[in-house]
C-alpha cells in the first residue's frame, strides 16, 4: 500500500489536472458559442450562392465550352481528398473520426484502381494519414485557430485547389470535415467539391420571370463557380470549428468527471491508510499498557 505522503501528493496532482480540464471545458464552451454564431452568420450567403449557381447551371447548357469546374475533365481517375481537421488535439475523437472516414473512402477508391491524393488542412489529419498514404500527399497547410479563419483564407485554399485542378493534377476533389449536429454529436462528412455538384431541386424556381443577365449567364456562372468552392470550404471550416469546440467540451467534461472519480477513490484509500496507521498505534499502546 502506498504511503500516506505519496497518496496525498497523488491527490494533489489529480486535483490540479481536474482544474485544468475544467478550465479547458469552460473555454471550449465559450468558443463553441462564438463558433456556432459564426457558422450561422455565414449561412445566408452560402445558401444564396448555392441557389444562384444551381439555377444558373440548370439553365446554362453543359457543353464543350463550359467551365471544367462544372463539367469536369471528363474522367475520374485521380481523386484529391481535402481533409480538414484541426491543428490541436485534446478534442476527443474529432480529428480521428474525420481521418478514419477519409481513410476508408481512400481504400475503397484504391480498390477500384483509382489514384488518391491528399491535401490536408490541419496538422492532426496529416499526422494520421501520412502514416498510411505517404506517397499521395500533395500539400499540407496548418490553419492555426479554426475560429479565426476568414473567408479570405478559404478563398486562398480554393484558388490553390482550382489552380491544381486546371493544371490537371486531379479530376475529382472531395472535402472531408465534421458537420456540427449537437454538442454531443459531430458527424464526419464527405462532400464533392470539384466538379461542382448541382443539388437536384424538386421545387422548380417559382419565378418564371425573365431575368436579365449582365454580362451573360455563362460569364456570371464562370465567376461564381470559384466563389462557390470558396464558400463551401469556408462553410466546412466553420462547421469544423464548431465541431472541434463541441468535441473538446465533451472530452474535457468527461476528463473532469473521471478526475473527480479518481479523487474520490484516492481519498477513500488515503483515509483507510490513515485509519490503519492510527489503529496500529492504538493497538501498540493498549498492548503496551496491558503488559504492565
Amino acid at each position: 500500500m502506498a504511503s500516506l505522503k505519496a497518496l496525498k501528493l497523488r491527490i494533489g496532482s489529480v486535483k490540479s489536472t481536474q482544474k485544468i480540464t475544467k478550465a479547458m471545458k469552460m473555454v471550449a464552451a465559450a468558443k463553441l458559442r462564438r463558433a456556432q454564431e459564426a457558422a450561422e452568420a455565414g449561412r445566408p450567403y452560402a445558401q444564396r450562392v448555392e441557389q444562384v449557381v444551381a439555377s444558373l447551371a440548370r439553365t446554362a447548357q453543359i457543353t464543350e465550352g463550359s467551365s471544367p469546374l462544372l463539367a469536369g475533365h471528363g474522367r475520374d481517375q485521380v481523386h484529391l481528398f481535402v481533409v480538414a481537421t484541426s491543428d490541436k488535439g485534446l478534442a476527443g475523437a474529432f480529428n480521428s473520426n474525420i481521418a478514419r472516414l477519409a481513410r476508408r473512402r481512400a481504400l475503397e477508391l484504391q480498390e477500384q484502381g483509382k489514384t488518391v491524393k491528399f491535401l490536408t488542412i490541419g496538422r492532426k489529419g496529416r499526422a494520421v494519414l501520412a502514416r498510411q498514404f505517404r506517397d499521395g500527399f500533395v500539400h499540407a497547410v496548418e490553419p492555426g485557430d479554426l475560429g479565426k479563419l476568414t473567408f479570405a483564407d478559404a478563398k486562398g485554399y480554393a484558388d490553390d485547389l482550382i489552380r491544381r485542378f486546371t493544371a490537371g493534377e486531379f479530376d475529382v476533389a472531395h472535402l472531408f470535415y465534421a458537420t456540427f449536429k449537437t454538442v454531443l454529436t459531430q458527424e464526419p462528412t464527405e462532400q464533392q467539391l470539384i466538379p461542382v455538384k448541382i443539388p437536384a431541386q424538386s421545387a422548380q424556381p417559382a419565378a418564371d420571370a425573365v431575368v436579365e443577365y449582365e454580362p451573360s449567364e455563362e460569364a456570371i456562372l464562370d465567376s461564381l463557380l470559384p466563389t462557390n468552392i470558396a464558400v463551401q470550404i469556408y462553410r466546412a471550416m466553420k462547421e469544423n470549428a464548431a465541431s472541434e469546440q463541441g468535441s473538446k467540451m465533451t472530452a474535457m467534461d468527461n476528463a473532469t468527471r473521471n478526475a473527480g472519480d479518481l479523487i474520490n477513490r484516492l481519498t477513500i484509500e488515503y483515509n483507510r491508510t490513515r485509519q490503519a496507521a492510527i489503529t496500529t498505534e492504538l493497538v501498540e499502546i493498549i498492548s503496551g499498557a496491558e503488559a504492565l
Binding site: 419565378a207 431575368v211 436579365e212 449582365e214 454580362p215 456570371i220
Partner: peptide, 19 residues
C-alpha cells in the same frame, strides 16, 4: 457598381442579375 456600369435600383425593378 455593376461590371458594365453603375445601375440604380428602385422598388419594382425588373428581375436582373449582374456581377
Amino acid at each position: 457598381p455593376g461590371t458594365e456600369g453603375d445601375f440604380g435600383v428602385l422598388e419594382g425593378h425588373a428581375p436582373f442579375m449582374s456581377t
